[in-house]
């Protein structure tokens, strides 16, 4: 299987700040790569370079064999980009937006109109097609934005945080649309901070933090890399939380995570059910009021915590500011 996207040693600096420190990645044709990382990690910078908006300071990137710097014009004909903000003209109707983008992809009047009609239908926007995009909900605007990036049937599609800011229902809808695209054979590079999103949509993942790749693989491989299980318990009071940490620390194979807001404690453990029984025995008679307890497999949030030392939505404002 050939690679639709090849990135080698990509470096990007903004003044003194190094946003990318040699990123390597490939996306096989017809697959989805999830590019994961906290805010400011460099995800958007990668997408901007691949979509020819920024020039890299080092390394190289090819889209379907075309160099993003020296063959930028040809690259633009084979890609579609949906950025973090729905880039639609809010004064134009949905239909006018799509036809405009079609014309600018040089599809011709008739073809642009035909494609616009197909995409409006596919993205459930037919009823709103003649209304200015100003009147659209957030979810509708995102769909229109993605539709615009698909108008010329791009071979490679970049989706930069396609569901950020959407309510849970619109997010689910968006996932279905993206899954549909994949089944059509479009190659997709998707950035997200939502690990659930990557888990659901991406074939493979690359995790970056502070401009470097820190892990890569399938969701299962990443979870295996973290290993073990998670013992999760909810207690009745904040004091109980502290007491529980003290009592259970000997069972943990790594640092426990506690959340005082929800009074929840998560311990990386080994040993399965026996460990759970042991935990219950340790807590017995301790006066800690136990509301809920369970054992679960690590999810991508745990992967993130383990790999980066901070959770995915734990933004580092200084890094983010510089990265932008």
């Amino acid at each position: 299987m050939s690679d639709a996207v090849v990135v080698e040693g990509l470096v990007k600096k903004f003044g003194d700040f190094t946003a990318l420190r040699g990123v390597d990645l490939t996306v096989a044709r017809g697959t989805v790569l999830g590019l994961l990382g906290p805010n400011g990690a460099g995800k958007t910078t990668v997408v901007r370079i691949l979509s020819t908006l920024l020039r890299p300071d080092g390394g190289r990137a090819e889209i379907t064999g075309l160099d993003v710097v020296t063959q930028a014009d040809q690259v633009r004909s084979v890609i579609g980009l949906t950025g973090q903000y729905a880039a639609v003209d809010e004064y134009l109707t949905g239909e006018e937006n799509l036809e405009m983008v079609g014309r600018l992809y040089r599809l011709g009047k008739k073809e642009s109109r035909a494609r616009a009609g197909q995409l409006l239908e596919r993205f459930d926007l037919t009823d709103a097609a003649r209304r200015p995009a100003k009147t659209y909900s957030g979810g509708m605007r995102r769909r229109l934005d993605i539709a615009a990036s698909l108008i010329a049937r791009p071979q490679v599609l970049f989706l930069d945080e396609p569901t950020t800011g959407l309510d849970p229902r619109s997010r689910l809808g968006m996932w279905e649309f993206i899954a549909d695209l994949v089944s059509d054979g479009t190659t997709i590079l998707l950035t997200t901070q939502y690990l659930e999103e990557a888990d659901r949509l991406a074939d493979r993942m690359v995790v970056i933090d502070r401009g470097s790749v820190i892990a890569r693989g399938t969701a299962d491989e990443l979870k295996a890399q973290v290993g073990g299980e998670r013992l999760e318990l909810t207690v009745g009071s904040v004091e109980g939380l502290g007491r529980a940490v003290e009592l259970l620390r000997p069972l943990a194979v790594d640092d426990p995570q506690r959340d005082e807001q929800t009074r929840r404690l998560t311990l990386p453990v080994k040993g399965g059910a026996a460990t759970l029984a042991e935990a219950l025995r340790l807590l017995e008679g301790s006066g800690v009021e136990l509301l809920d307890v369970g054992l679960r497999r690590p999810d991508l949030d745990d992967v993130f915590l383990t790999l980066t030392g901070h959770s995915a939505d734990d933004a580092d404002p200084a890094t983010e500011e510089q990265a932008r």
Binding site: L53, Y85, A86, A87, V101, A148
Partner: peptide, 17 residues
């Protein structure tokens, strides 16, 4: 501000249009 310039710049259109 609205990201439209990004969209236009990612299209195979004329650079001055």
């Amino acid at each position: 501000q609205k990201g439209l310039v990004d969209r236009f710049r990612s299209l195979p259109m004329s650079r001055s249009a």
